[in-house]
């Protein structure tokens, strides 16, 4: 674990430099430990694949003080109490207008469309981080046999619920938004509701399985 400063009022707690489950588990433990500290000087905690970004209130603390404290408190992550990961089953309409890139992915991977769907549904994915737009889960790890590159030029608008893949990841767009991932299907499940706590259907560490809807 390394703590590095980032801007006047933020620090990064870094656990590795690549996407893997071991690093993810450390990030997740650190995230829930940071929450359990209930510190008034911490105003934002953003966990991602390899690190936690902490934004702090610099009227109440300093980088030196907070980094010192976190170095101590995060030294042992073995006993962190965490909520059990929720498991989400997400029904998806694959292909046609719902998934305009499905046939590209099949062609790129030299598979049939049915094989791409089968492999996308075969894995239980882990939510590594939530971001890009509110509630967007970055999930892995995608079967490398259906990995496809991002679009050269992102689409300016795709519908809410679009399911995309990019390299070894898959994700779901909670809102109509721009999108650079290959869209293979769409779900009717609502991923983010600004009117209802806890707002986001998913959080770091959750598990996801896709089910083909006919």
């Amino acid at each position: 674990m390394i703590i590095q400063r980032y801007a006047e009022n933020a620090l990064r707690i870094i656990f590795g430099n690549q996407i893997d489950m071991e690093v993810h588990e450390k990030v997740r433990r650190a995230f829930f430990l940071l929450i359990s500290l209930h510190r008034h000087d911490i105003i934002e905690i953003i966990p991602s694949f390899c690190s936690c970004l902490v934004i702090y209130e610099d009227d109440l603390t300093s980088y030196q003080t907070l980094a010192g404290l976190l170095n101590e408190r995060l030294a042992d992550l073995s006993a962190v109490e965490m909520p059990p990961p929720q498991v989400h089953e997400i029904p998806v309409h694959y292909g046609s207008d719902y998934g305009p890139d499905l046939s590209f992915v099949a062609g790129h991977c030299q598979l049939t469309v049915a094989e791409v769907i089968e492999r996308h549904c075969a894995e239980i994915y882990t939510v590594f981080t939530v971001g890009f737009t509110p509630g967007f889960p970055y999930m892995g790890t995608l079967d490398e046999r259906i990995a496809a590159p991002r679009l050269e030029t992102p689409r300016t608008r795709i519908p809410a619920g679009s399911v995309g893949i990019a390299q070894r990841q898959t994700g779901i767009y909670p809102f109509e938004s721009p999108a650079g991932w290959r869209i293979i299907g769409r779900t009717d499940i609502r991923l983010f509701d600004p009117a209802r706590p806890p707002y986001s259907l998913m959080q770091i560490g959750d598990k996801v399985r896709f089910i083909e809807e006919h």
Binding site: G131, P134, F192
Partner: peptide
């Protein structure tokens, strides 16, 4: 808005 960065809320 602050406090919801972990679920991607800017």
């Amino acid at each position: 808005r602050t406090g919801f960065g972990a679920v991607g809320v800017p």
